[in-house]
Design a protein around this nucleic acid. Structure first.
Lengths: 196, 196
DNA sequence: TACTTTTGCAAGCAAATACTTACTTATGGT
DNA sequence: ACCATAAGTAAGTATTTGCTTGCAAAAGTA
């Protein structure tokens, strides 16, 4: 009987969830399957998380720490808006392609569970991405670099389509997705909407 | 005991599924809940559909008939590419906002079930939307109206972001979503990427 | 060393799941 | 009026779900 600390087990459980989602879909994320994937008994899971829902919420918190906060730092950098926008998009693309299970989790969970706590977190993740990119655009317009007739809100909506479409394509093509320079090519396209 | 024909019951069952999804989320779509929503016994459902999965597949077929085929007609029209692109986008936006349950179904099902038959249909729905819009753009470039340096594939990817982001926003905000001129404003934004 | 805390497990829980069975009755065509 | 068929039901099926219980033993602490 090997024993590990809660900190380690919590990480193992969270990544077991993501592995199962990516391999077999959200439907297979049951407490018994999670236990098998980690290599512990089902009851042990409840030593480290109060409920299954708490596992999902913990994963969403990871997204906030590992994606949203770094994105916030990029926005606050003291570099040209064009560079910040490029880094912002590429950081997002990298994160999503490196964490495919998370992609699918965020995607399904909202319409599957309809749980208010989860919805709040998902809203936070979505709206922050959107508003932060809007900040970069506002800066660019204020500096006279970009077209001041562009609606920042509309641009942000169009921008959000990029990571979300990437999500969909990864889900539909599972392993197969691999597009070179995806972020660079998308960046150049949307830049056309900003230029005067 | 009221009795109705299979044709009617199949429609009732399909829309019961969509209503439940929109009200309570995909998780609540169980055969017992569907039966209650329609007002028949659980066993009766299996008189009209072989399995629960067959209900979902039938709904996806409806999307192909009611959305994809009309979109195909728009692409084949003999009008300026600019007009066709506008009608294409607005038709999609209208369909999605009028059928909110479908939106959520298409979204979650892929990553939830991971069933190959469903994936095939979802791929069909997604790829057709993408390729058909690409056809309009190719026409516009061939006619010398739009920038021939634009990658049709990249533009189509960016375009797909619009309906998909609309989906996400509707899911996250449930009833609340209502944006005037959404399709017109998005149309004018992406048009900037095409112009010479 | 002794004692507390933490991590583990097997077994069991009620509730829910998709679907079947065996039987009844309404409807439409001859 | 008759009857085959289609549409209905209540009550079951086996399996899975998230989670709890009672107890054992490893690890940390004194």
């Amino acid at each position: 009987m090997v024993r590990k600390s809660t900190d380690i087990r919590r990480d193992e459980i969270k990544s077991a969830v993501l592995n199962i989602i990516f391999r077999e879909g959200l439907k297979s994320v049951s407490t018994s399957n999670i236990a098998r994937e980690v290599g512990i008994s089902e009851g042990s899971i409840f030593r480290h998380f109060r409920s299954k829902k708490e596992i999902i919420l913990a994963i969403m918190d990871d997204v906030i720490n590992d994606l949203i906060e770094p994105l916030r730092s990029i926005v606050l950098e003291d570099s040209p808006p064009r560079d910040r926008l490029y880094n912002y998009l590429c950081k997002t693309v990298t994160y999503l392609t490196d964490n495919k299970g998370i992609t699918m989790l965020l995607f399904s969970e909202a319409s599957y569970e309809n749980d208010s706590e989860m919805m709040t977190k998902l809203n936070y993740i979505f709206n922050n991405q959107k508003q932060l990119v809007g900040k970069i655009v506002s800066d660019g317009i204020a500096l006279g670099l970009w077209n001041e007739l562009i609606s920042v809100g509309d641009f942000s909506t169009l921008y959000m389509g990029i990571p979300i479409t990437l999500n969909i394509e990864m889900i539909l093509n599972r392993n197969a997705f691999e597009r070179v320079n995806f972020c660079k090519r998308m960046f150049e396209l949307i830049l056309n909407t900003l230029n005067k």
